[in-house]
Design a protein around this nucleic acid. Sequence first.
DNA 1: ACATGTGGTTCCTAAAAGGAACCGCTATTG
DNA 2: CAATAGCGGTTCCTTTTAGGAACCACATGT
Lengths: 305, 305
Amino acid sequence: MENIISMKHLYDFQLIEAVARTGSMRRAAEDMNLTGSALNRRIRRFEEDFGFAIFERLPGGVRLNPAGELLLHHYRGARSDLARVRSQVADLSGERRGHVSIACSQALTPYFLPEQIARYRAQHPGVTFAVKVGDRVQAEEQLATFSTDLALVFEPIYLVDFEVIQCVPQQIHAILAADDPLAEKPELRLRDVLTRPCVLPSAQYGVRHLLGLAARKRRWELQPVVESDSFELIRHYALHERAIGFQIPIGLKSVADTGLVFRPLSEADVPVGNLFLGQKQGRTLPVASARFAMQIAGAIVDYAG
Amino acid sequence: MENIISMKHLYDFQLIEAVARTGSMRRAAEDMNLTGSALNRRIRRFEEDFGFAIFERLPGGVRLNPAGELLLHHYRGARSDLARVRSQVADLSGERRGHVSIACSQALTPYFLPEQIARYRAQHPGVTFAVKVGDRVQAEEQLATFSTDLALVFEPIYLVDFEVIQCVPQQIHAILAADDPLAEKPELRLRDVLTRPCVLPSAQYGVRHLLGLAARKRRWELQPVVESDSFELIRHYALHERAIGFQIPIGLKSVADTGLVFRPLSEADVPVGNLFLGQKQGRTLPVASARFAMQIAGAIVDYAG
DNA sequence: ACATGTGGTTCCTAAAAGGAACCGCTATTG
DNA sequence: CAATAGCGGTTCCTTTTAGGAACCACATGT
């Protein structure tokens, strides 16, 4: 998966990464299909070449020291840059192959991303995709450690090392049964929905965060009857108990004919959130990723309108 | 020199760079102390691992193809980034060692840089320096290929990939004998000096460029009696024939007691040039280089005032 | 036509890396 | 408290890999 690149000169770094991950030379050795003694010798020799120890030896295992952290970050950067070079070389050889990895929120999985990926692959069948779903913190981490090329996140937190490619506003929508009396209003107030049973995403998600802000401002408290990190569960549960779920509109096109409707919350009550498409600051992306980024940058603008 | 870092995993790239430099596998093999057959095998195996050929095989030698150019640029970036990591690790080990490489114009060599380097080394004796003198084009090239950390150039041309750290104006000064009648004026006009025998830097230098611009505007032509790429020769020749040389003030502190004086040209005649201190766009410099950059950034501002 | 240079290949030897067993240590556990 | 299990580190020996020398096919320039 990641080892597609795995050129030989980076083998030492792969070993170091494995040791750092497992916290033990012997376990890492098993992972990498060699014996503990061999791995130990490689690590020690590497440290000698490098000039500094990169692991703390503890009883019961090893751990990266600060020097090792710096070094591992360098390796991840170098590896991703080599992948970019390989991609550019493949591109100028006319191969039109490549690989795109994107970290995104769950809201993008039911409708938006499948459609976009299919559209892209229709033009470039040689390009493969890796979609890593997670909350906004995980997305930013994966960007920082070169684990992903792109991130598409709603209301990211830190935005350090995050280069914004595109940013579109997304007002939170309430999801309710089609025959719910509230469904007749074109726009819902916060007091309309918070007096009803609510199904909310868990705390780490941006939708929950914005709803929490809006509620706290009015000295209310969010009291979800169901709380989940599965947006799919939230949507389906809204139908079962006639409870109210929440989501951003880009994730809602698909609920149209499932007995559910969605209505925006009033901007006077809940602040508008932003959906960010970004990459790691300063990176040059592989060609396939860069092209795909351009495509969805345009697409999210269309969806927002 | 550059191989201070030379960790083992970059050996293949060092070989590739040697082949690219010499244009021949056998000559590169000699340089790197191995035989042609061994080197050839390594290159071919590397290309197989990488997935693409990186050399064009011509009768009479080899040459990097576009893929190879991309790859070599990646390598130079990775190498310099590893050097930075090593520097940071050394720094957090309290070693206060390091190496600073700077490309600069000749104007900085007689007085400014020696003083600055001495001042820095007085505080950090473990830090070594490499000063590469050249014209402004060479300085920018060296920055782009990671051959130098810093560049201090007068009137750089392209400024692509050039991250400006500091920029100070420098008005061109005329250099003349202390007993020259013109020396009595505090400021000289262009017509005063161009009617006299002139000693000019050659075309690639910024001083010549600005003088040429000013002259062409008035439909005059520069007709130097002596033209040289040695600023030292220009200074000394001014004394011998009582000709007029040109230089920027930061390079002139040292001529005070050599029978020469310097007077600024009027800003109405010759546009003010700029002395730029810069690094490669987006790079994180090794600690020693970053600290030295901060020092001279302050120093050139003082000199300009 | 020849000598000289090139990249590429083969065969064989030299060097480097890996595997298995063992050492000294520490934390856990009966 | 002693036995045990797991850890990093070391040693010895085997396996694998890389390097050296000679050679080939080819192109160039005398």
